[in-house]
């Protein structure tokens, strides 16, 4: 074989070997254990921070509200549907026995009309909805920006919770 071909082939051989070495060094440890991916990625995806506690954790302290809610039409609503994610609240609330929680731990109280309207605003897509879980009732719908908007006496805008107890509407 002529000299220049030998040079060329060794040049390519060196490149190839370098590539293979690099490859060995760079391939992540758990790659290929379960398939063509890093198996560790599954556990890494599992270690993220949680935000929603689950209603079982709420009833541990707020037992009475749970009982109250259980008798009304909102019985299948979990607490966090309206009050937002409460894991931090459930974890740290009992550290403040006097009941004065810092603002960061307080949960949202949905008292605005638009918040009730998320579910109860009249909408053509809601009219035919039946709930076999709650005695085949239709969801109550109103026009949230009209329905008893103003207080008859004071003529001021009134909130839904003025008349409706959200835990037992």
């Amino acid at each position: 074989m002529p000299q220049h071909l030998k040079r060329l082939i060794s040049f390519f051989a060196i490149l190839l070997i370098l590539f293979l070495i690099m490859r060995q060094v760079l391939i992540p440890k758990s790659f290929g254990q379960l398939g063509h991916y890093r198996a560790d990625a599954i556990s890494e995806n599992q270690v993220r921070e949680l935000h929603y506690a689950g209603s079982e954790n709420c009833t541990k302290c707020h037992d009475s509200i749970h009982i109250e809610k259980d008798e009304g039409y909102h019985k299948q609503l979990k607490c966090e549907v309206c009050h937002g994610p409460g894991l931090k609240h459930t974890q740290y609330a009992d550290k403040f026995k006097d009941g004065h929680l810092p603002d960061s731990l307080l949960l949202h109280k949905p008292i605005e009309r638009k918040e009730c309207a998320l579910c109860h605003q009249k909408n053509a897509a809601r009219t035919k909805i039946l709930f076999d879980t709650i005695d085949n009732t239709m969801i109550v719908q109103i026009d949230a920006m009209k329905h008893k908007l103003l207080n008859k006496k004071t003529k001021e805008e009134q909130k839904c919770i003025k008349c409706h107890n959200p835990h037992q509407p």
């Binding site: 689950g54 979990k78 966090e80 579910c119």
Partner: peptide, 11 residues
């Protein structure tokens, strides 16, 4: 626990 969207679905 359930995924958040399943946990939160009111219906």
């Amino acid at each position: 626990l359930q995924p958040a969207c399943f946990e939160i679905c009111p219906t």
